[in-house]
Design a protein around this nucleic acid. Sequence first.
DNA 1: CGATAGTTTGATATCCTTCAAAACCTGTGG
DNA 2: CCACAGGTTTTGAAGGATATCAAACTATCG
Lengths: 238, 238
Amino acid sequence: MINPLARKLSSFVDLSPDDCRHLDDLCTDTRTWGAGGTLIREGERPEVVFLLLDGWACRYKLLPDGSRQIMAYLIPGDLCDIHIFILKAMDHSIGLLSEANVAAISKAAMQRTLEERPAIARALFWSTLVDEATLREWLVNMGQRDAYARLAHLFCEMWLRMKQIGLTHGNSFTLPVTQEELGDTMGLTSVHVNRVLQRLRAEGLLSLARGQMTLHDIDRLREIAGFDPNYLHLDRRD
Amino acid sequence: MINPLARKLSSFVDLSPDDCRHLDDLCTDTRTWGAGGTLIREGERPEVVFLLLDGWACRYKLLPDGSRQIMAYLIPGDLCDIHIFILKAMDHSIGLLSEANVAAISKAAMQRTLEERPAIARALFWSTLVDEATLREWLVNMGQRDAYARLAHLFCEMWLRMKQIGLTHGNSFTLPVTQEELGDTMGLTSVHVNRVLQRLRAEGLLSLARGQMTLHDIDRLREIAGFDPNYLHLDRRD
DNA sequence: CGATAGTTTGATATCCTTCAAAACCTGTGG
DNA sequence: CCACAGGTTTTGAAGGATATCAAACTATCG
């Protein structure tokens, strides 16, 4: 399976070969963007739905004082803006954390998919609910955990999400995010992120260098973070 | 208009009198719960959809160490658990902040509504997206603003949301939330919440006593909070 | 009127920020 | 192959926002 969206949705529903082909057909209009670019800006009303095929992006808001809060990481298989069917304008922006390959899906094509492919529609709704649950968990993370547990939690989550779409190699995965960006994600300064990372490294829990993350002791990291993956709803069984 | 859900959805779509009647019909099985009760517990799979008709509730998670994070306030017109159509189990709990009147809507009735009432279905999807946008804004709040701005922001938001459903009296509204609960909401201790509230009161910005909140200077509060209501998507105009 | 939950106060500790500079990469052009 | 530029990571010292702990005070309600 090549299409990362199909890969992701398959962890929730069984997609027919026909559904998979359909998803592939949606991804004909693709384009590569450079790292640091902006896919969608707050206030805009995009004309197409963007699907990340390769690379990382993030949802973020800029505040009047120049600070930035990153509110979600988008990885291959993630849709950027299904909101456009309903809402008048984006209430946040989407930026690229790495070079990325992005498919632009027309509103009409997307609409047709939702109407004609109930399995896909259902899985997309599931995906929306998981996004929301993830936001809630991030809120818990920011509100209740110190920087040490907070970073550990983020890394546990991203490892699982990357694994879900088949992009881990053992305990390693690509994490194309600077310490500055990690800070903007966790409500910390990059200085403090740096010091906490050093501690995590010194304790032999992980390695992170040149955008490559390896978790050496996932069990311990989960323990530190109080990580419970239930909010990702990866479990299909009833 | 009595039904608070109809009231809320009307700020997004024009509901026909028939739609409104339909919503009223959904609210036949109602019950009053005492403050402090738990509507739904994490891990459960509710059999019905709960709709808050009167009173306040909150989404929250309890952590192993006993701390609690409140992730959303639910006010009249809010649905507690549309998730049940898709997800296997609740990933958080819902508790009552005040005495509350709650309608229990059967899954089947809800399903029928979604299928037969496109205007309502569309409005409910809008409502879900607004909930998600609100979570993102809360994340910004926790990550980037200090306790002073954070509380100001929360109060600006709740005033607008209460206004939307017609439950404000001028600049006043019911806020049946203890300082402890405010702390669990904003990732602060109740002690610190207390001190910040005192400052806000001393500056003549608000009064809060016995669950009654009055905002004396909304413009100034918005300024302090950096409050931009765009994320609530209250504006219907294109 | 006493019990209980909620609010307020003070003193001290800690996590994290701020500021500023140095060290380290990585890619580029000479 | 070296030198240089720009972004990123690392380090140190000092300050500030918020937590912690413990006790007193205040409402509310049966």
